[in-house]
Design a protein around this nucleic acid. Structure first.
Lengths: 318, 318
DNA sequence: AGCACTCGTTGACACGTGACAACCAGCGAG
DNA sequence: CTCGCTGGTTGTCACGTGTCAACGAGTGCT
């Protein structure tokens, strides 16, 4: 039913070994006519090598597993993993997604079983999981810590600088309460605080809330008085605070200023619309992608990593 | 480095064949002591069978591929696919996710290469992709069309009935403009219209918009006058309309009433908060899961499908 | 004692591929 | 004529598993 390399070989009138080599980079050692005949047979039969066989023979598969963090990204997964999938496919690799919420044991089963070429994540991995993977001899592709921290630091800095430029002097940073969902919050907060310090402002307040009215209310209680400018972990957090402020009768941005992050479609639809930070998710993954490919290809031709571009989207909450 | 079944066999003092059979359901044919020794060896070595070898030998892998539709679900993927992953793992199957946005050719490669036990989707599959899969002899698990249509019909009906109960007489239905992102819209709209007819109301207006201010404004233009009650494809659409209505100075819910769908966290944070429909995503996937498992196990003990429970969440836009 | 029969176990093959040594034909040099 | 060389091709082994026929040791029956 499904053609094997033997079928291709027979049809092309050569040995299976010839087919295999032509299809695996040794093509130049063969006569052009042979190459052509094999190519034609492959096309006619719609042959695709069995990844199981390949895996067995080579010791590792062509599969790259992306561990999806248990977190809320500002965008849909499509935006984030779509280009990764395509780019890897172009290099003969298959990207497959896996929720990293599942147990360590099941991750173990997965890697031992599938022998992935690499495991990739866009956020730092829990130590336990990373150990597991290296122990199993799997290549782990985490974002370059420095560059990742750098991106998040830039976000925090950008938020702080914008608020300060707009004249606000009492600043605060609002995290998601659930630390699991807030993997980048630490780095952003640190940069935010640092920027405040550099500008000679007081230590900013730190808030924690879930995306819910109750939490937003108590967060505002903590601020006690109007007059704060709050940088938020994402647009959802900003929306929650905006809601509570409106309810409380605080004027935005006079009594409280808010800046979000992600530039989600909904950030244009609050009243008033949110100031936020936007970025091109395609471009954002490009960096991690480059790192990944460099390490996989063992090509040390390090293409310089393009800095992901962030745009401050000024709307009406600052 | 990675133990094989041979290693287990040697350690347990039996043949590899014995190990294989004990681990694959033929355990009862073997002496208890042998079973115990094998079990112990497995544990001590941390043995996991290589899925490549398995796949080769059996002709199909233990992998189930979930095709993620190119659509915006109201919830995070974690909520939707998390329980699926776990439940399948309990049955020795491994769920991996795959964006269905990628090309047909790459889907083909994936399927031929990985020989998945089944391919699963939560929405109906494009005809081209389905053909491809059955041609490759893969089991395709689509949601039972009738039950799926039924769920969506209930949503449309529920929205209509609520609006009518609240006394509204001029109704409209608002789709996402991008039909790709709106796979269920058709079924919901039909049920919505039907319910209007049953109650003797005029044919409802149909709107199409993206989640953006411009689109929401022109959608309202189409309605011309205040006095409509609009059922929306999801909470985001409702939020967009709410924004435009507020901007226009229309009072909600007097000049325009809105009901969303999904009960997202943000639906509590609009001003005024959205009336919407909530459901338990865990329970919602349970149905598809049961179907899938039944078909995989070939157990014809059809557990009756539990009806997905929907709760109308009345807030301030109706 | 010989036979059939069961229980527990093993040996051998197949699955589809990649890698590499070995092979063959042809050809020029000695 | 023989040797060595080269471009082109093939044979063979290894990868780790599942399956199934076959095997040996008991055991009860005739």
């Amino acid at each position: 039913m499904i053609p094997t390399s033997q079928d291709v070989a027979t049809r092309a009138g050569v040995s299976r070994s010839t087919v295999s080599q032509i299809l695996n980079g040794r093509a130049e050692y063969f006569a052009e006519e042979t190459q052509a005949r094999v190519a034609q047979a492959v096309a006619e039969l719609g042959y695709e090598p069995s990844s199981a066989g390949r895996t067995l023979a080579r010791g590792s598969s062509d599969i790259v597993i992306a561990l999806i963090p248990d977190t809320t990204f500002g965008r849909n997964l499509q935006d984030i993993y779509g280009s990764l999938t395509e780019e890897l496919a172009r290099r003969g690799l298959t990207l497959v997604l896996r929720l990293s919420t599942s147990t360590e044991a099941s991750l173990d089963r997965l890697v031992v079983g599938m022998k992935p070429r690499a495991v990739l994540t866009l956020t730092a991995l829990p130590a336990g999981q990373r150990d597991l993977l290296v122990r199993r001899g799997v290549e782990v592709l985490e974002p370059d810590e420095s560059s990742n921290a750098d991106v998040n630091a830039r976000i925090g800095t950008l938020q702080a600088r914008h608020l300060i430029e707009r004249g606000y002097r009492s600043l605060a940073y609002a995290h998601l309460r659930d630390a699991r969902s807030d993997p980048f919050g630490g780095a952003r907060e640190r940069a935010f605080i640092e920027e405040c310090r550099l500008c000679g402002l007081d230590q900013p307040r730190i808030l924690h809330l879930d995306v819910a009215p109750e939490d937003a209310r108590s967060a505002l209680e903590e601020l006690e008085l109007p007059g704060f400018a709050v940088a938020c972990y994402n647009d959802d957090v900003a929306t929650a605070l905006l809601y509570a402020a409106t309810e409380k009768g605080w004027k935005v941005p006079d009594d409280i200023a808010l800046i979000g992050m992600d530039n989600t479609p909904l950030s244009r639809l609050t009243v008033p619309p949110l100031t936020t930070i936007g970025y091109d998710p395609n471009q954002a993954t490009q960096g991690s992608l480059q790192q990944l490919l460099n390490r996989l290809d063992k090509d040390n031709n390090r293409e310089e990593v393009v800095e992901v571009q962030m745009d401050l989207v000024q709307r009406a909450t600052t």
